[in-house]
Amino acid sequence: MSLKKQDLLRMYKTMLLIRRFEEQAVQFSLQGELRGSLHPCIGQEATNVGAVFALRPDDLMTCTYRGHGHCIAKGLDPREGMAELLGRETGCSKGKGGSMHWTDPAIGLLGENAIVGAGAPIAVGAALSAKLDGSDRVAITFFGDGAINQGALLEALNLAAAWQAPVIFFCENNLYSEMTPIANMIGTETLAERAEGFGIPAMIVDGYDVIEVYEKTSEAVARARAGGGPTFIEAKTYRLFGHMVGDNEPYRTREEVEEWRARDPIKTFPERLQKEFKIAKKEIEAIREEVEAEIAEIARFALESPWPKVEEIETFVFA
């Protein structure tokens, strides 16, 4: 395994930061500080972090409205992220985008997306761009199980196969297509087998095992970098929160949620770090304290940030 102790600790820290970020965002939403829809990735942090850690900083990425985790793992400044959620001028979109449109080409982030499946063809274009440049950058597109039935996603799979684009299709199968079981919406056992029909190699990974996600994604990334074309990864994961703030979750049982919660990586990964990797408890404690301080600073920064200037309302419609 290529992961060193420092990498493992950084993974843990990023997962915890994402979890606490999302919890703080939910808090802000309930307090009325945050407008519109919020789709927390609570429960999917290991999937996010394992996959993004397999990328280089200059690799390209699109993700979804449940994308805060990917973006933070890729390097988006969480202070800018939280300020954006609060609609402030210091937000990554200057308050013009909100929760579902974080974008920062400086870190390869070509956007979250509020349209299911829409980021996939954009990522294929970005991958083609890298290929045409003769660079070994790759693109990854994150999407949920629900996107598997969208035309744009299926068209993107075909384009990637036809062009042998260096792109990883990363499906976070959290079992629910918004508020409906994905099992009722498809005719196959797995989502991964869809990809095989396009001539794209596919694999299934345990999305609650950050190390497995990292290793399998690394294989796909290596293949893409070497000119081997696209890969489809289906990560079995689960959100421990509703689809969005306000979801009363009639479509799933409390028992099912508790079963997954027992495996919650935020709880189990530090245990594993101690047992399997002999990392001292105090190092883990130190990370927790660090993250708490960071979250306090993120929240303070966002709350104290100025509102956007109304006279700039039309700025950025055109370049």
Binding site: G125, A126, L128, G151, E155, N158
Partner: peptide, 19 residues
Amino acid sequence: PISEAGFVGAAVGLAMTGK
């Protein structure tokens, strides 16, 4: 391919990455 959503989307991705 005959895939307008796909290739216009890919064009958006190309445009966002310097093409």
